[in-house]
Amino acid sequence: MKQVLLLLLTAWLLAACSTVQPWEKDLLARPSMALVADKLDSALDEHIYFSKEASMGGQGVGGGGCGCN
């Protein structure tokens, strides 16, 4: 809960300092500025590291388990 509050506080602080106007979103609208620019690479990599490391997740929920020997 503490962590959630901290996250919200951070967001609020950041929101307060942001001044980007709707018409200034030209660069942000580009595909290269997407948070996940290549979804296939990301899906393949996530699967590889899921089967080679003991950590997973961070960017979303679920994603399908596997036996992954």
Binding site: V4, A11, L14, L27, L35, V61
Partner: peptide, 12 residues
């Protein structure tokens, strides 16, 4: 799984 996230435009 549960996730909460914030995406913020920092500047242009």
């Amino acid at each position: 799984d549960f996730m909460i996230g914030v995406t913020q435009v920092i500047n242009r």
